[in-house]
């Protein structure tokens, strides 16, 4: 699965990067974020656009996986 790294980017860049990546890879992506705001915003965006979202905590980062809902 394609992975994008949004660490260090401030609002709303993580969501913008997610949006661009999903336009190119509509079947699903993994997004690495490093703060709670980005975690909430990216998850909400993916849910709104019809993806199933799971969030894993990895130390200081979160990995958000969005897969196309069946």
């Amino acid at each position: 699965m394609r992975k994008i790294d949004t660490c260090g980017m401030s609002c709303p860049q993580p969501v913008l990067m997610t949006k661009k990546a999903l336009e190119e890879t509509p079947e699903g992506i993994e997004v690495v974020v490093d703060n709670n705001t980005a975690k909430a915003n990216v998850s909400r965006f993916m849910k709104h656009t019809g993806y199933q979202v799971t969030v894993q905590e990895m130390g200081e980062h979160y990995i958000i996986v969005g897969e196309k809902s069946k």
Binding site: C11, P12, V15, L16, K19, T37, A40, R44, F45, H48
Partner: peptide
């Protein structure tokens, strides 16, 4: 809640997100 006055308008235009 991350309340932000410019974020409201921005996210609505950018992502159609009303949060």
């Amino acid at each position: 809640s991350r309340l932000c006055m410019v974020g409201g308008t921005r996210d609505m235009i950018l992502f159609r997100d009303s949060y």
